[in-house]
Nucleic acid binder design. Structure first.
Lengths: 204, 204, 204, 204
DNA sequence: AATGAATGAGGCTTCATTCAT
DNA sequence: AATGAATGAAGCCTCATTCAT
């Protein structure tokens, strides 16, 4: 049906010249996506904005989908990398402290490129594919954090708890970004989220 | 290039005898969407499956977007209607009781046509429009329910609380539908959600 | 690998209007093929010459290959039809007489549209496909003619004889058309072919 | 649009040390042609398989056509060379003996690389050029053989006889290769061809 | 001489939409 | 009101060929 043939891998940029080309293409993709939307994203337009011939684009990306996939991956990596910076030295903290830190990390991650993040989630057809990208990785982190403190944990089902927490954090941060940006600036969201999830997780 | 013509359905499909035709078209749209995905949704194909000429389709829907818009609206209405059935006679209940009932209502609503729901959320190039559809309406309900019990409420900011609760319910139900359907069958999700949100809302 | 997906059957022209369109398209295809060659045969060019939009072309022909296939079939049918006209009332003739008549029939058939015939055989990639078209049919005719006179026949293996005769006739007529057209006008080819094949077939 | 540049290989590939490169390229061309077909034959792919940069390919072959032309020529030369080995010491033989030997020679020649032979004939957009390749050369041989025995010859027109014989041999061997390979193994084709052409050529 | 990144004309095809009947 | 043939802008992508290094 839909998820195209695994996107024939193309030439990996080896020379530095081609690395520049690839960067320009991804950058142009992001720009058009955020400024003009998915409808306007055509391979020719990307190439044009990247200052590259359409042929070059297809040397590195087998099709339009691959373009978006690569961009999403890059974005996800940036998010994860930033998040990790916020998650160091948490070994001996309590659950509320850890939670707050994780929420802070998620907030930071979502601040990487909000416009792009939104477009990627709202306008891309096979969003299922890419949601996995930024998911899983954080779920694992969360899982191990909570597992280490299972004695303080109220929910017996660890996996379920991870699901609840992870989705809630993501949904509320994303929702706030779109509809209530003021909650981000004032720190209210961070506060409420911490409260809500702490109350949920910790034995009363 | 040229910014599309206003696109939003100017004229609601006439509600006369031709109602049958309109139904057939929307039904065909839903079928193709759920079975074949947005990529395969072409106006000609819709018309063919609806057993209607392409010309007739355009008599009732000014363009493709209007087709999807109407379908989304229909779907949202069905969801809201079903939800309301679950929300009667709650005037003298406590917050946890109300919450559980609201969650049950939301679960029922999401069970209306999960496949369609998913496709509508994942594959449609969100034209800003459709999210509003199933949102707002429930938020109002929630707002009034909580306002009536503001004395039992821990969060001072009512609007913020509504936001938190509404998004959390939606995100977790949707997430469970996609990734953990077992949580819906066992009632675990309902239980955990009630716990989490009660703990958040009620004064300790 | 090559032989494309069975060329999704498209709309069969039902109204007379569309019949005209299909004719125009095939005619344009033949014209471009004979005058400009296969290299110049592009779907857009065909549509343009046919005075038809490219969209219309694709309503009746799923791809470029189908265009050529249809044209070849049409051509083959014309050839067979003409050949049959030359092959009536041969029931009580001797082998040489029958042979000469068959050769005459083949000559007539090849005179239908020699230019097109040549292009179809020389320039079309998957010529194997279409050679079958004008073959088989004649082989059957030949087979039955010879079977009826098996007592006068020298070769014991009938199928082999049919193969020898059919291919020889085709090759020489085609070869003469391309390289020695004078042999066709003077009747020399007909004469020599009859001699050669009679000598081969008839018991000495 | 603009009629191609002269296209025929201006410079024969230098016959020095770079002979190895040229061989690799032609070999790769043949391999792709026989295994994947003309559709898959791209200059980049040839270069890759030859283990040579695309730039190098164009150093030895001015364009794609030249590549095929050279390959066809090579193939034709191999065929002719092999045929000649079968045609020595025939000076004092009778026509049937000579004929059989010529047929044997042709059979041997066609066995050189049947797959390539077929592809070259079926899938290459005959640019008029290549047919001549394997033709002419044999016709001359045949012409001289028959001229030496013109007293035993029935047909008065020598050139016509050569045409008849040469085309018949070629068509039947090729046809058998494609559609009746068993005739080649059993020797039946050789036998029948000798019979048919002897009967045609020799005074009764 | 070799490399391989880059080019870009142009081919094939789709599909939302129009309009003559 | 309905039909469905026709439209054509525009998208995706290939591949022979060039050229800077």
């Amino acid at each position: 049906m839909s998820p195209k043939p695994p996107a024939t891998p193309r030439k990996q940029p080896k020379q530095e010249r081609s690395q520049v080309t690839v960067e320009a293409i991804l950058s142009a993709t992001a720009h058009i996506l955020t400024e003009n939307g998915y409808n306007q994203l055509t391979t020719n337009r990307v190439a044009e904005r990247a200052g590259v011939s359409i042929g070059s684009l297809y040397q590195y990306f087998p099709n339009k989908e691959a373009l978006i996939f690569a961009l999403a991956e890059q974005h996800a990596n940036e998010m994860v990398q930033l998040a990790k910076q916020h998650l160091e030295g948490l070994s001996d903290r309590t659950i509320p402290e850890v939670l707050r830190q994780i929420i802070k990390a998620a907030l930071a991650a979502h601040a990487v490129n909000p416009k792009l993040h939104r477009v990627l989630h709202e306008q891309i057809p096979h969003s299922e594919v890419m949601k996995r990208l930024d998911q899983a990785k954080i779920e694992n982190l969360l899982q191990s954090f909570l597992a280490q403190r299972s004695d303080q944990l109220r929910p017996k089902n660890l996996e379920l708890a991870v699901f609840m927490v992870e989705r809630t954090i993501r949904a509320l941060i994303y929702g706030a970004m779109i509809d209530h940006p003021e909650l981000l600036k004032t720190g209210e969201l961070e506060q409420e989220l911490t409260l809500m999830l702490s109350a949920y997780l910790v034995k009363s």
